[in-house]
Design a binder for these strands. Structure first.
Length: 260
DNA sequence: TTAGGGTTAG
């Protein structure tokens, strides 16, 4: 290009760096990044975002974070694209506190992004930290951050995962989230119902378990045999309930004989 | 001019 009097610009370098990142030639990409600096060509937001995304995808988040510091010293403001790459990478490496920190920075600048909340919440679920995951779901509700047509499916899955995860450690909060899902129109998966019912049976809160079975059926989910037997066993273990059930049965038999 | 990610039935 040079011999033809057509010198590479920042766009030329950015395109090349992007391409090298796509083929995971990260060291070469960094090499070009250095080279353009030496030539006095100033990297812009696109250049940084490309290289940082490549580094994150290649499991080199720390280097990407260094670039974040460098770009701010050059008075370049990261935007949603930049943060998105970083948060994705940090979550993949289970560096959740750093991911949360970046999300906070985005919030300060007014970026609301349901997809990135999703990444972080999924990260907490993978780490079995369901309370934290639920906190972020609450935050989404309070902040009116709702998923769009494309992220909706992911959001449904995340809510279900968190409810199931909470069943183990905090059934009451799990139930609270379950209720909030219903009011927000987020469909509860059959397996999630099973988790809730099982957890309340174990806790001995049979009324709640029965209520959930009822709502499950109303939603058109047919409880499977395991769920039925879990609930029945729960009731059965209580002697008084059994006696009452037997009385009702006697009544029913009497009535059916009378009506015939 | 150059950067990411997110859905799904047919």
């Amino acid at each position: 290009m040079g011999t033809k009097g057509c010198l590479p610009s920042v766009v030329t370098y950015t395109s090349l760096i992007h391409g090298l990142c796509l083929s995971n030639d990260l060291d070469e990409a960094i090499g070009l990044f250095e080279e353009m600096k030496e030539k006095g060509i100033v990297a812009n937001l696109y250049t940084y975002s490309s290289l940082m995304d490549g580094l994150c995808k290649g499991g080199r988040c720390s280097q990407a974070m260094e670039l974040l510091e460098i770009m701010t010293t050059e008075h370049l403001q990261p935007n949603t694209v930049t943060y998105s790459s970083l948060i994705n990478g940090l979550c993949k490496e289970q560096r959740l506190s750093e991911a949360v920190e970046l999300l906070d920075r985005m919030k300060l600048r007014g970026f609301k992004h349901a997809g990135l909340y999703g990444k972080i919440i999924t990260g907490f679920c993978v780490a079995q930290k369901f309370q934290e995951a639920a906190n972020f779901l609450d935050e989404m509700v309070f902040g009116r951050i709702s998923p769009n047509r494309l992220t909706w499916g992911l959001h449904v899955r995340i809510n279900n995962t968190v409810v199931r995860g909470l069943c183990e450690t905090d059934p009451n909060r799990s139930f609270q989230l379950y209720l909030s899902m219903r009011t927000r129109g987020i469909s509860v998966e059959a397996e999630t119902f099973d988790f809730l019912i099982d957890s309340f049976c174990k806790k001995g809160d049979l009324h709640k378990a029965a209520r959930i079975v009822e709502e499950m059926v109303l939603d058109g989910c047919i409880p499977n045999e395991t769920t039925w037997s879990t609930v029945l066993r729960g009731f059965w273990d209580r002697k008084k309930v059994r006696e009452a059930a037997e009385l009702i049965q006697v009544e029913l038999v009497k009535k059916s004989i009378e009506s015939h």
